[in-house]
Design a protein around this nucleic acid. Structure first.
Lengths: 166, 166
DNA sequence: TTTATATACGATAAATTTTATCGTATATAA
DNA sequence: TTATATACGATAAAATTTATCGTATATAAA
């Protein structure tokens, strides 16, 4: 169904909340889980994965919790998804595992591989143009013209540019 | 994992094969299933769904099978996916079911809904720019410059434009 | 030093979704 | 009349996602 995993959603909700904190204030997994009614264990694992990848840092103990470790503008959605859901590929036959392509297991005679490869490249490019900074903004900013052909990967992208009311 | 369903892949493979046939020659489900080693029953259901949506037409009986019924240029990938996999939405809380939005069941207090809505719009736009005609071409055409900001939904889109060797 | 709090992490179970199979009905050419 | 092929509902198997459990580790505060 081409849907994001729950952990991806949890991760974005968590980052959105963490970044809203001021001057070095930490946020605990418990706090986020209660604030948004998310299952604690899964959220905790999600945060641990984000820490493992250097997106946030943690402090142990009674006043412990998480703070941002990287500029969210420098993390694009493709990278975020690969942290949260593993290697991103719209077709499994092109998914890289441990550095090497896993070839097609379904058919010995595929007539769409070339096009799926092209589609995958284009999809990856789509994800690359979206930063986690944008995805974790508090609210949709007022619509600004966006030209995807000139925007670089870390440019600000206003999603609503294609068809929303001003 | 943001992966296409098997039936979507089967559907594209089938359409790619069917369109390659010349002067009104029909293609049976059995033929496709044997040609590409795909499970017959699933492929048959896939073809039935494509027929139901008017993409192909069928003829019964001994020399029966399928032929194209619509110009594949007029079917974009968003529509194709909704035929094959049901309503397309990158987040379930925005997925329309029976005309009305199904609201979020996970949390009473979502801080990313606005951005997910924007992301979804943008994703849908991405899918809209890709036609089934392109996806079912026999091979990747030689790379041509593609400017996504000026291309209309049914324009030819060359996927390889972003980063492939010429 | 003890206790409460909080992260860390492997193992496993439950739920959901996807994928495949089965049985039967219908239509048509040979 | 028979063989071939689509049509379609019901159900089972497999895979994936989501959630839970148990235990270990680190730290601030009492």
């Amino acid at each position: 169904m081409l849907k994001l995993n729950r952990s991806t959603e949890y991760g974005l909700m968590a980052l959105s909340y963490i970044r809203s904190k001021t001057n070095g204030e930490v946020t605990s997994a418990r706090e986020i889980s209660e604030k948004f009614q998310l299952p604690f264990e899964i959220l905790a694992k999600t945060l641990q994965r984000l820490k493992e990848q250097g997106v946030i840092t943690s402090t142990y103990g009674t006043r412990g919790g998480y703070i941002l470790a990287r500029d969210l503008k420098g993390i694009n959605f493709a990278e975020f998804l690969s942290i949260m859901e593993g290697p991103v590929s719209i077709v499994s036959c092109l998914q890289e595992c441990d550095g090497k392509d896993s070839s097609c297991e379904y058919t010995t005679n595929c007539n769409i591989k070339s096009m799926m490869s092209a589609l995958n490249t284009r999809f990856y490019d789509f994800l690359n143009r979206i930063s986690v900074e944008e995805l974790t903004r508090a609210a949709l900013p007022r619509s600004i013209e966006f030209d995807s052909s000139t925007a670089s990967a870390y440019d600000s992208v206003v999603f609503g540019a294609s068809g929303e009311e001003p």
